[in-house]
Design a protein around this nucleic acid. Structure first.
Lengths: 331, 331
DNA sequence: CTGTTAGCGCTTTCAC
DNA sequence: GTGAAAGCGCTAACAG
């Protein structure tokens, strides 16, 4: 069953396609009588305008693309949902793509979106594909980076003060557990800017006390649950396990707890401070504090930058930095 | 900066647009020499074909839409991710929309997708909009329902045996806590088929023992965290609180635990059995068992049905029913 | 106020 | 093997 066109509607209503188009877009002049008649006919025929044709002609899609590293992660989706709401309120649509933290898939996703002629791209990137992204930003499609920086890309962006928050959190742990230094660092992958910054902030807090991080208490994770589990097994099976852990994201933290459970160690045996959305976990333990990134707030900022850029392509690039909130929930 | 067209490429390569199109689609005859030359030029110019124009002409978008009630819920996103993977392997793209459990927004999302000329629609519906959905299914765009049925809509669908699993779970609780009957039912909204079925299954287990559910121990929630919290306050502040709770989804369960925490009641004070994805929670308590719905498996089935339907529009409608796995994790 | 028409970027006959 | 040209569904001058 072929879908109806504006021609079918015009025929059925006994008017020209231009008139139908005018009532469709509420543009130009059309008598009230004809307007309502045409609307009537559209209802009856269940007519649905073809967005492809419309966009092709108008050279506007009113569409924004977003590429996320993991759409099952509530942090990103909470952020994205706000973006989507705000855009929709302004007549734009948001199209989601998942890169799976994989640069090649990210590339594919971006090219797909470009083919769909999105007007702006929101990207929480893998860190790669900098050349392409730069090129896009300089050729008509606005780009807003969120959460993560991309090497060599200078555009609008919304980021967090990762180093500062990490430093604050680790300073707290050092203050509590002293210079014995048994504080473990569960880092994310070096390829991701947030991970680098969090790691750097943590080390800075240690250096401030005139010490150096003990490398046997630093684990190079990759932001996955599995790597948190591995870190746990690595640290907690030794003679002198750490007294506290600083974890760079929520997934690794869950993995760490899973490791504890598998080792038969009580979850309260060790204090944890972690970046990220950990609502579920904080319900259950008193020894976990989170560095909360406020995805809603970030989503609002992203939407604002996108809309501003869309309406004025020439404005200076803007960089918004938010400070995550260190929520000390340990009693 | 206007994006390049096939014309620009043709000009730059000194060939006709038809030839460029042929190398783009690897269709028709074109000499090896010209082919590689054109490809060279496309690379250099960073040419990105306009998918709108292509789809308009071909009357095929190779695009599938999915409308979910809550994209921050990992259950739905885990399912959707598999669908997306499988479709992509077959040359289709998946476009996500979030209805926010709101029938009006669902309608809007569906119409938007229809306008984009998706070839198939995957829907975890609010339960409303049955007429429209039926109409779609009968006019060229295939529809696959997932997780939830929609009144009056008969199409391909992938569902779970909600009643059966609920009955099994409640029977377990009754067996353990006996005919004293202090088992509370935390139900979802009647408008959603899964909620109705889970509620019905739970009641059936009770009736089997020749009893009736105590209505003061039945709470009409709405699948949100807030309603789980409300139920908790409602039940747990009375003289004889229930000994166990059966919860119809993950969000309400989290809300229930939040309520306990706010009331200062130990989380292990009451046994809970809940539907849904609760990975994080099961790490922390031993008195929570889950009825696991296996979103991956469901996603696989959805993708399979979509692809089958896309390649043979005339086949009989298919209904796949999966049995959730009751994972007794209470010791 | 309404209709005619050109053309958005692409694919696809049909000639050559 | 390659090019010319029609046309997908729609919008936006331009005429009237």
């Amino acid at each position: 069953m072929p879908s109806l066109t504006i021609k079918d509607v015009a025929q059925a209503a006994g008017v020209s396609t231009a008139t139908v188009s005018r009532v469709l877009n509420a543009s130009g002049y059309v008598s009230e009588q004809i307007r309502s008649h045409v609307q009537q006919v559209m209802k009856e025929l269940n007519y649905q305008p073809n967005a492809l044709a419309r966009s092709l002609k108008q050279e506007r899609t009113r569409t924004v693309g977003i590429v996320l590293p993991d759409m099952t992660n509530p942090y990103f989706m909470t952020m994205a949902r706000i973006v989507q709401q705000r855009l929709m309120e302004n007549g734009y649509h948001l199209i989601y793509m998942d890169s799976g933290e994989n640069p090649a898939k990210e590339l594919e996703a971006i090219e797909l979106l470009l083919g769909m002629r999105i007007e702006a791209l929101v990207l929480a990137g893998t860190g790669e594909n900098g050349e392409l992204i730069s090129h896009i930003a300089h050729s008509g499609t606005s780009v807003v980076l969120v959460d993560r920086a991309v090497d060599g890309v200078l555009t609008d962006s919304v980021v967090e003060d990762n180093a500062g928050a990490a430093e604050e959190a680790v300073a707290y742990l050092l203050g509590k557990y002293g210079t014995s230094g048994a504080i473990a660092l569960l880092n994310g992958p070096e390829s991701i800017s947030t991970a680098r910054e969090r790691s750097e902030g943590a080390r800075k807090a240690i250096r401030r006390l005139g010490m150096e991080a003990r490398e046997d208490l630093v684990f190079a994770g990759d932001y996955t649950r599995q790597s948190g589990r591995d870190a746990c097994k690595y640290w907690m099976t030794r003679d002198e396990p750490p007294q506290a852990v600083f974890s760079a994201n929520n997934e690794m933290t869950y993995g760490f707890y899973q490791g504890l459970r598998e080792l038969g160690i009580p979850l309260d045996a060790i204090e944890v401070v972690s970046f990220g959305e950990l609502d579920a976990a904080t319900l259950f333990t008193n020894r976990l504090s989170v560095i909360y990134q406020n995805p809603q707030q970030i989503g609002e900022a992203v939407a604002e930058l996108v809309l501003k850029r869309l309406e004025d392509d020439a404005r200076d690039r803007e960089r918004r930095i938010f400070s995550p909130r260190f929520e000390l929930t340990v009693r």
